[in-house]
């Protein structure tokens, strides 16, 4: 798993790029990075998943936890460029209704 991030002050948004595989091994790192970003600016987050190959329930759990914190500050999390087979996981778990989701063409 690899995470890069950039804060866009004009939109007050963290732009995060998430790639590779998020599982029980890498999810703690994802949690640590996202919470550290919110410690700096508790703003909305846009996560680009163009190169995300895999995410399981541990990764989804991290995103849910971070979303709670973002929503407490009236922000949101947008997830874009999801591969269709990963979007399917968000759909079957109902998470497509609480995150703003955009599927990869």
């Amino acid at each position: 798993m690899n995470i890069t991030h950039n804060y866009n002050p004009s939109t007050n948004t963290w732009e995060v790029s998430l790639s590779g595989e998020v599982d029980v091994y890498s999810a703690p790192q994802l949690k640590e990075v996202l919470h550290s970003l919110l410690d700096q600016h508790n703003s909305s987050i846009v996560i680009d998943c163009q190169d995300l190959k895999y995410i399981d329930s541990t990764g989804l759990g991290v995103l849910i936890g971070v979303l709670k914190r973002v929503k407490d500050n009236n922000g949101n999390i947008s997830i874009k460029n999801l591969k269709p087979y990963i979007k399917k996981i968000f759909t079957i778990t109902g998470l497509d209704k609480i995150f703003l989701i955009e599927v990869q063409e």
Binding site: S57, L60, G61, I92
Partner: peptide
């Protein structure tokens, strides 16, 4: 573990 319920739901769906 709060993820375990979600985990089992995913298994059953797939």
């Amino acid at each position: 573990n709060e993820q375990t319920e979600l985990s089992f739901y995913i298994m059953e769906s797939l």
